[in-house]
Amino acid sequence: MNFSIEQLQAFDAAAHTGSFSAAARRLGKAQSVISTAVANLEADLGVSLFDRSGRYPALTAEGKRLLLDARHIIEACANLQALSGEIAAGVEHRLTLAVDDTSHLPWLEPILGVFAERFPNVELELLFPLLDDQIAMLLSGRAQIGIGYEQTNAHKDIETRSIGMVRAPLFVAADHPLAAKKRVGRADLIKHRQIVITSRGGAPHHFDVLIASKVWRVEGDLAILELVKRGHGWAMLPEFLAEGPLGAGEIFRLQPDFIPELPVMRMEVLWHRPHAQGKAGIWLRDALIRRAAERN
Score class of each variant (00 low, 15 high):
Asp44Val: 01
Leu45His: 08
Gly46Ile: 09
Ser48Gly: 00
Asp51Val: 02
Asp51Cys: 02
Arg52Pro: 00
Ser53Thr: 14
Ser53Gln: 10
Gly54Pro: 00
Gly54Asp: 11
Ala58Cys: 06
Leu59Phe: 07
Thr60Pro: 05
Thr60Met: 03
Ala61Gly: 05
Ala61Met: 03
Lys64Glu: 15
Lys64Leu: 14
Arg65Asn: 11
Leu67Ala: 12
Leu67Met: 10
Leu67Trp: 13
Leu68His: 07
Asp69Thr: 15
Asp69Glu: 15
His72Ser: 13
Ile73Thr: 14
Ile73Arg: 11
Glu75Thr: 13
Glu75Arg: 14
Ala76Met: 07
Cys77Met: 07
Asn79Tyr: 10
Ala82Thr: 11
Leu83Ala: 15
Leu83Trp: 08
Gly85Val: 08
Gly85Leu: 10
Glu86Ala: 09
Ile87Asn: 03
Ala88Cys: 12
Ala88Gln: 13
Ala88His: 10
Ala89Leu: 12
Gly90Pro: 05
His93Glu: 15
Arg94Leu: 09
Arg94Thr: 15
Arg94Glu: 15
Arg94Pro: 06
Thr96Phe: 03
Thr96Glu: 08
Leu97Asp: 02
Leu97Lys: 00
Ala98Met: 05
Val99Ala: 08
Val99Tyr: 02
Asp101Ser: 15
Thr102Trp: 09
Ser103Ala: 15
Ser103Glu: 09
Ser103Ile: 12
His104Thr: 08
Leu105His: 02
Leu105Cys: 03
Pro106Phe: 07
Pro106Lys: 04
Trp107Tyr: 05
Leu108Val: 05
Leu108Glu: 04
Glu109His: 05
Glu109Asn: 04
Pro110Thr: 05
Gly113Phe: 02
Gly113His: 13
Val114Pro: 00
Phe115Arg: 08
Phe115Val: 04
Phe115Ser: 08
Ala116Cys: 05
Glu117Leu: 00
Glu117Asn: 03
Arg118Leu: 02
Arg118His: 00
Asn121Ser: 11
Asn121Phe: 01
Val122Thr: 15
Val122Gly: 04
Leu124Asn: 03
Leu124His: 09
Leu124Met: 13
Glu125Cys: 08
Glu125Trp: 04
Glu125Lys: 05
Leu127Gly: 01
Leu127Asp: 05
Leu127His: 04
Phe128Met: 09
Pro129Lys: 05
Leu130Asn: 04
Leu131Trp: 03
Leu131Asn: 03
Leu131Pro: 00
Ile135Trp: 05
Ala136Phe: 00
Met137Phe: 08
Leu139Glu: 13
Gly141Asp: 10
Arg142Gly: 06
Ala143Glu: 13
Ala143Leu: 12
Gln144Leu: 01
Gln144Lys: 02
Gly148Asn: 03
Gly148Cys: 12
Tyr149Thr: 12
Tyr149Leu: 15
